[in-house]
Structures are given as C-alpha cells and as structure tokens.
Design a protein around this nucleic acid. Structure first.
Length: 97
DNA sequence: CCGTTGACCCTTC
DNA sequence: AGAAGGGCCAACG
C-alpha cells in the first residue's frame, strides 16, 4: 500500500460539493504522511483526480495557477455546489465531509 | 547513491 | 500576537 495511492484514493473519493484540505487528508491517513506529501502527490496527480477540491486549511484555493487560473477552479467548485465564503475562500465548515 | 526540494500544517519561542 | 522551525515521503539531478 503506497501512501500515494491512499492520497489519490481519498481525493478521488471526495464527493461533489465537498472539499478537503491537505492537513485533513494528512490526518485522515493517520498522520503517517505529512501535508507536504499530499501537496507533492497533487503535483504529480494523474488526470482525473479532482485536485481542485483540495484546498488550504484556511479554505483558500490552492495554487490555482496549476489549474490554469484561479477563476477556473472557483468556477468549478461553485458549479459543484461548494459554498464560497469569500471570492477566493471556500466554506470548508460546510463543504467539509 | 546522496542531497535537496516540494501545491503544507502544527507547535513552540 | 507575530514569527520561526520542524516533520513526514517521494522524485529529480
């Protein structure tokens, strides 16, 4: 069982309208990995992985540039039904699983 | 093969 | 209250 597979599994199992933070995933894996690994895994994340649902612990959008534009990610999350507290801040409290 | 870096988070000073 | 450092795993050079 590779840690990476677990990360991909969790991220891939995030339901629509829900978001997760790097730290959440890190703790979800029993803390056997660090959030930095999640970020690193996201960097190497294969296509099909809803990495756009993964945000910072503050609820702010992650490196939106990776998706090609912060507006893109915001639009995508908004389409999925994610509640936005601020223009670029997601309400994790409600969007959290 | 060894060292450094990487999309982070949390604890302590 | 603000700032700094530590920590984990994997890939790249």
């Amino acid at each position: 069982m590779g840690s990476f597979e677990d990360i991909y599994q969790i991220v891939a199992q995030i339901p629509e309208g829900k978001v997760m933070s790097y730290g959440q995933i890190s703790k979800m894996l029993n803390g056997r990995i660090s959030a930095q690994l999640v970020g690193w895994a996201m960097r190497k994340a294969p296509m099909g992985l809803p990495c756009h649902r993964v945000l910072f612990a503050d609820g702010s959008l992650c490196h939106e540039v990776v998706f090609g534009g912060k507006d893109i990610q915001k639009e995508m999350l908004e389409q999925e039904g994610v509640f936005f507290k601020e223009v670029y801040q997601v309400d994790m409290e409600k969007s959290q699983v």
